[in-house]
């Protein structure tokens, strides 16, 4: 899906974005409230320049529009996989982007993300997964790894993986799995302006994805294990 098509539906009241290479930035209006739009297009591979430009866009919002909510529009095939990116330390650029988003949250910006295209591993990690809550459109694609590639790396047969995917949300791609795991809060359907408005009205809680994943039956251990460790405070 292209980004304008999604934004037309999210902001019937209008929006303005500029495109610079694979990065978009701008502002939209949702139910009378102005919010910042920052994101990537064309299944961007997030290398050092894209991560840097995204960070610059976040810093601009922090400095020029204090507390304005930020909608991250996610469409990424993951981090860019080149010698040059690693030579110059892509992890540091992605970390910088994550820190900028964290700083925005600490300074009172609401940060919500929407996967409107594709979301894959490291690219998703430093963008959409840094939001307070991540959402997806129904036709979005989210994965860590395709099952074929997973077969190659883990030496588990495709048949066995397919079978496991019928009951477990852990292994396979797909937004329903990511909803069950608590990673995606909800799928946006129908009136998308309402969806964003609702998301911005939810409290700016800290990370509750493990608890959500447990409630939804996708992963029960993350919340339990962390809880047990927190309960051992008197031993420390």
């Amino acid at each position: 899906m292209n980004v304008e098509y999604a934004l037309d539906k999210i902001c019937p009241g209008g929006y303005q974005i500029k495109k610079d290479n694979l990065v978009i930035s701008g502002h939209g209006v949702c139910k009378g409230q102005t919010f910042a739009i920052i994101g990537t297009i064309d299944h961007a591979a997030i290398g050092i320049e894209v991560a840097f430009d995204l960070a610059a866009a976040v810093l601009e919002v922090i400095q020029r529009f204090p507390q304005r909510p930020i909608l991250l529009m996610v469409d990424t095939q993951g981090q860019r996989l080149t010698h040059r990116d690693e030579l110059l330390a892509n992890h540091a650029y992605l970390a910088h982007l994550a820190k900028c988003l964290e700083l925005a949250r600490c300074r009172g910006h609401r940060v919500v993300s929407l996967v409107y295209g594709e979301a894959v591993s490291g690219g998703f990690f430093a963008t959409g997964m840094m939001a307070e809550r991540a959402y997806a459109l129904p036709n979005a694609q989210i994965r860590v790894m395709a099952l074929q590639a997973m077969t190659r790396v883990t030496k588990i047969s495709l048949e066995q993986l397919d079978e496991l995917c019928k009951t477990s949300a852990i292994f396979g791609p797909g937004i329903t799995n990511f909803v069950r795991l608590g990673i995606i809060e909800d799928i946006w359907q129908g009136d998308l302006e309402n969806c964003l408005d609702r998301a911005l009205r939810l409290p700016a809680d800290y990370d509750n994805r493990a608890e959500l994943g447990c409630e939804r039956g996708g992963r029960e251990w993350a919340a339990k294990v962390a809880f047990r460790i927190r309960m051992s405070a008197e031993k420390v």
């Binding site: 860590v144 790894m145 852990i170 292994f171 608590g182 990673i183 994805r209 993350a222």
Partner: peptide, 18 residues
């Protein structure tokens, strides 16, 4: 990420970060 637990591994690292 432990690819044998792909999705759960990725979100686990995000939870560590938060």
């Amino acid at each position: 990420v432990r690819l044998h637990e792909a999705n759960a591994g990725l979100v686990a690292i995000s939870e560590i970060l938060h």
